[in-house]
């Protein structure tokens, strides 16, 4: 464990807590893409298949349970909570995410570390996570101005993967046998997808204006 990875995990945890806070406190999920939340639930379930077979550390196990639990709770809330579900922007959240699922799965069948069920699903979850934010970014662009908690959620989510890139550089430099190309390349793509959002987020923060994404 290094400081970059810990910072990344904490930032990731904050992004999830910000989202849960927004939904719980305001009893509203306006501006939040259910499709992105469902993709993230799939990412965590398919990535942590080794939850009960490989014990890495208490921290690792607890964080896996938190991520799986919170992502499923958010999806449940947005789908079935009688108050929250009314504020879901169903007509704006129309990203055809089956494409993302299909492409990620085919890519995982081709590119993986070992051809085992667990490794193929792990690679699938890495590829899927890189593109899971797309429905959310599209929804933010369609709904124009971003209410600040939704914007903060995307900001922290993007920042966590940026910290992980620093973690991979650090591990590459310190551990002679560290070769996680699948994670590294996919993480770079993922962070690049956030780049334009970060730009507009920074501009709005600098001008202390509401975040306006170009339609």
């Amino acid at each position: 464990m290094n400081i970059f990875r810990l910072a990344g995990d904490m930032t990731h945890l904050i992004s999830v807590l910000v989202l849960l806070l927004k939904i719980y406190a305001t009893k509203s999920c306006s501006g939040i893409s259910l499709k992105t939340q469902e993709l993230y639930a799939i990412v965590f379930v398919t990535r942590y298949l080794d939850l009960f077979t490989d014990f890495i550390s208490l921290y690792n196990t607890v964080m896996k349970l938190v991520f799986i639990g919170s992502s499923l709770a958010i999806v449940w809330c947005m789908r079935y909570h009688r108050v929250v579900r009314r504020s879901y922007d169903r007509e704006l959240d129309t990203f055809r995410y089956w494409i993302l699922l299909g492409v990620s799965f085919i890519l995982a069948l081709v590119l993986h570390e070992k051809f085992t069920l667990q490794e193929v699903f792990w690679a699938f979850s890495i590829y899927l996570e890189a593109v899971a934010i797309l429905p959310q970014l599209v929804l933010l662009q369609r709904s124009g101005n971003v209410d600040n908690l939704a914007g903060q959620y995307v900001f922290f989510l993007g920042a966590y993967r940026a910290f992980y890139i620093l973690n991979w550089i650090y591990r590459y430099l310190t551990e002679q046998r560290f070769t996680r190309w699948i994670s590294c390349v996919s993480g770079l793509v993922q962070t690049a997808l956030y780049a334009d959002f970060f730009y507009y987020y920074f501009i709005s923060w600098k001008n202390n204006a509401k975040l306006q994404l170009p339609a």
Partner: peptide
Amino acid sequence: TRDQNVHDEL
């Protein structure tokens, strides 16, 4: 050492 292919990152 733990065999490398165990994914120790979240």
